Amino acid sequence: MGERVRFDGWILGLGTTSGTRLVVGYWPRSPLGPVSDVMVERADGNRVLLAATPELASFVAGTYSFDEVRVVPVEVGRAPGHWVLRAGPLALRVRVGRRPPLGWALRTVPSPLARTPAWVSLLDPFARVAGLRTRGTAGGGRTEWYGVQDLHLIRSASATWDGADLGGLARVDPPVRFGFGSVPPTPSVVRVTTTIGLSTPV
């Protein structure tokens, strides 16, 4: 079995009425320390990675596909019901809402079990019915397992890119094209442990 690393934290995914879709990774625990990144797909299909450090940018770009990679300060502020993010040209404010039935169901699974690749692989066929993936092959010969443990819906969001308004909150439609899967189409925040099997050491 090859080396495996874990990124433990939250993924926030949303769309905007301008067509830009955003995926924020907030990782208090990772092999690179506390880090954050933003994957952006613009309305024209251009895919941009905004990463807080060169090491994180290299790792993420080696796992997912982008047209442009930028190393910029990424600052994420979280308070009950609110996220505030600054990442280079992007400014984002989000209000987080209720936990839907799926979120309650996810919380019934003990976290140590929910994080294991074996459990995640077991769930993958069911996730595919909903158009999602919990396990798949990523770039660089890597394999990923998404151990989701909770989910909240996003109530509202405001975002700008270089000061230009990106529009109101919208579904993640079409799905983002960074890797083998997308975030849920309904704007949401998920508590997740991402396990990555490496072909080479990080």
Rank of each mutant, 00 (worst) to 15 (best):
T53F: 05
G81F: 14
L92W: 06
I154P: 12
G197R: 01
R98D: 14
A130Q: 13
G139P: 09
V23G: 06
T143V: 14
R99Y: 13
R93W: 12
S18E: 13
S199F: 01
P80I: 15
F7G: 02
D67V: 06
R133W: 04
G19C: 08
A159T: 08
R78D: 05
D173R: 15
T108Y: 05
R133N: 07
F180V: 10
R98Y: 15
G179R: 07
A127M: 12
P185D: 13
R42I: 00
T16I: 01
A127T: 06
V148C: 08
I11A: 02
R86E: 12
T160Q: 12
Y146A: 06
L122V: 14
L14Q: 10
P112M: 08
R6K: 11
T20M: 05
G81I: 14
A87L: 03
L12E: 02
V48D: 06
T134W: 01
L32E: 09
S156C: 04
M39C: 07
T143L: 09
T116P: 06
T195A: 05
T195R: 01
R191E: 14
A52F: 01
R42M: 05
R93G: 14
E55R: 14
G45I: 07
G9E: 07
P100N: 11
S188H: 12
S58W: 07
D67I: 02
A87Q: 06
Y146N: 04
R70F: 00
A43N: 12
S58Y: 06
V190D: 03
A130R: 15
V190H: 03
V72A: 09
R99I: 12
A57F: 13
A164R: 15
L92F: 11
V24Y: 00
E41Q: 15
A61E: 11
R70M: 09
A164K: 15
L90T: 08
V74A: 03
V74I: 06
D67F: 00
S158M: 01
E3W: 02
T134R: 04
S30H: 11
V24K: 02
V71N: 12
V172D: 09
V94S: 08
T134Q: 03
R177G: 02
F59Q: 03
G88E: 04
V72W: 09
R98K: 10
P184T: 08
D67M: 07
E75K: 13
P184H: 14
D8F: 01
R4A: 04
V84D: 13
Y26M: 04
P28Y: 06
G19K: 05
M39Y: 05
S199H: 13
G45Y: 11
T16E: 02
V172K: 07
V84S: 15
V189F: 10
G88Y: 07
T193M: 03
R155W: 09
G97V: 13
L151G: 02
L169A: 10
A159H: 05
A118T: 12
R155K: 14
E75N: 13
L85A: 02
G33E: 13
P125N: 08
A57P: 10
L106N: 07
V129I: 15
D8Y: 08
A79T: 15
E144I: 10
D8L: 09
T200M: 00
F7T: 03
G77T: 11
S199N: 13
P110T: 05
R128L: 09
A61N: 10
P117G: 01
P110Y: 08
H152G: 00
Y146Q: 11
P31K: 03
P100D: 12
T194G: 02
F180G: 02
R115T: 13
L92V: 08
S65P: 00
V129W: 11
V94E: 04
W119E: 01
G9D: 07
